[in-house]
Design a protein around this nucleic acid. Sequence first.
DNA 1: CACTGTTTAGGTTGAA
DNA 2: TTCAACCTAAACAGTG
Length: 291
Amino acid sequence: MPRPGRNTYSEQKPPYSYISLTAMAIQSCPEKMLPLSEIYKFIMDRFPYYRENTQRWQNSLRHNLSFNDCFIKIPRRPDQPGKGSFWALHPSCGDMFENGSFLRRRKRFKVVAPADPLARSKAAEAAHYLQQQAKLRLSALAATAAAAHLPPIGGYHFTTSPPPPPPPPPAAFKHPFAIENIIAREYKAPGTGGVPFPPAQHAPQAYPLHAWPHVYGGGGVEPVAAPECSAYGGVPLRAVPAVPVPIKPPHLPAFLSASSRALSPTGPQGAGGPSAASQQSPAALRSVAVH
DNA sequence: CACTGTTTAGGTTGAA
DNA sequence: TTCAACCTAAACAGTG
């Protein structure tokens, strides 16, 4: 297994699990939710290793999406035609990775299988919450684009109230394998005109880009283009700077805050115990309608 | 029909 | 050594 920061991963298998790769893809998108095809595209664009044997790893990736509770399937709304659903990270899985590193997870993120309809409705609320968050992010992006004299995002108009200002950049230590560093590219001040996949000199200062040759095309490999986030009707968003949001939202709704305690890897549920997957279909419980 | 999503099963690897 | 995380394969159903 290659060590990051040394040789290029251009043709080698990256040291990230499929869960990590999927989380990267989802986090890289302003809406924080992507259809399966875009997740594929993200991974193939950044990791040449995954441009081969696509059937194999894509099957594994789909398995991970369904099996792991940290991913939530968000159905398309009627105004979002297309195949398949959107996939998002569960709002409470922010501390899933050790010190923010995507190399290995602390513990499998597991949602206690809801045995009652009330718990199921909470899952629906979580999906609805994610949909609303995606709306708010797009609204913020549209406002930012307008301020920067950029064309509106696909002509989408949302009736939601203006989103709160983006949270201040976290001052806490960011692990080199944190998503912000792995996919670092558009994290610039709004209005400065995001540069998708900037060259090395645009990289965050803390972690030089040569540490991420597999992402930035180091080691003599040309940088690869960032995939277009085509959520919400295939609207290209790459020219719009991303609004950085914390992996773990600072203020979760009550229903999520309450559940996050039980869902947290550090929560009382802890390790051990029979796998919920073998008891009840977790995916069926997480797949909820949002309208 | 291709793609998407779910589920099961078996194997490998690393940490405790 | 055990256990959990992870990987891979495969079968199958649903959907656009």
